[in-house]
Design a protein around this nucleic acid. Sequence first.
DNA 1: TTTTTATGTAAGAAAATCTAACATGCATTT
DNA 2: AAATGCATGTTAGATTTTCTTACATAAAAA
Lengths: 134, 134
Amino acid sequence: MDGSEIRRNMPLFSIGIVMQLTDLTARQIRYYEEHELISPARTEGNKRLFSLNDIDKLLEIKDLIDQGVNMAGIKKLFHVKQEARMKDTETSNVEKTRPNLSDADLRKLLRKELLQAGRFHRSTDRGDMSRFFH
Amino acid sequence: MDGSEIRRNMPLFSIGIVMQLTDLTARQIRYYEEHELISPARTEGNKRLFSLNDIDKLLEIKDLIDQGVNMAGIKKLFHVKQEARMKDTETSNVEKTRPNLSDADLRKLLRKELLQAGRFHRSTDRGDMSRFFH
DNA sequence: TTTTTATGTAAGAAAATCTAACATGCATTT
DNA sequence: AAATGCATGTTAGATTTTCTTACATAAAAA
């Protein structure tokens, strides 16, 4: 399924909430963005908006830092992880051309799904944050 | 399970996002709060923070208004719904004294759960918003 | 020792949100 | 028809949140 992917990447959370959820300071979060470990979306007014995936990543970063890994290391780790995922989706034959939706489109899709009745999605479980929402 | 209940009530979303997610104006959302159809949490600085449950409710409100129901009617409907739920939990024998957590505690719990590895929660499905988050 | 790294802190600007008040279109009463 | 009430729009001014930029600093690396 692809819907979950969309949901996990939906920009929903302000930096204030992310701070509380991750126990990171704004400074830290911005620093990690500066080093391209995350790339939160922005509102029209330039405020950061984080997705569930972003939060998962931040928690991973925190863990890795606790284990002594530095920015460069984390970056590398994230890259290999992503490549692994690439291989994964490559392997899972059905490739389908991605739509590449705009932010506004994403929200529309969100709302549309919201109003439907389809039940129970679950895909390749990756990250931890998802656990939160059923 | 009770964790999902906590998650669904966690105050996470700013009014701006809720507007986008529900297609309601700030005025409408505040008006519904004024009429006690929702009771979003507040930040220290008095900004509203909405939970998944709040969003579900707003979507219900929108539906009902489309169907011509007025504030009083919606309020009544919500009340009977809640009473039905009460009966429900009453019936499900194990009653357990509720902890009644503070907002800060909620967040701590959130983070704690986040860092654990437990998988796949699903309880009495109520509301629609939950579908979003796996 | 000097430099780099990760983070703290402060300042000023801009965006988002708040409350309160008044405006308005549409139904319903009178 | 006029008056009233309901749900929402709009505006204004205040407050909170977030932004960027710059400088400070402790610990680690070179």
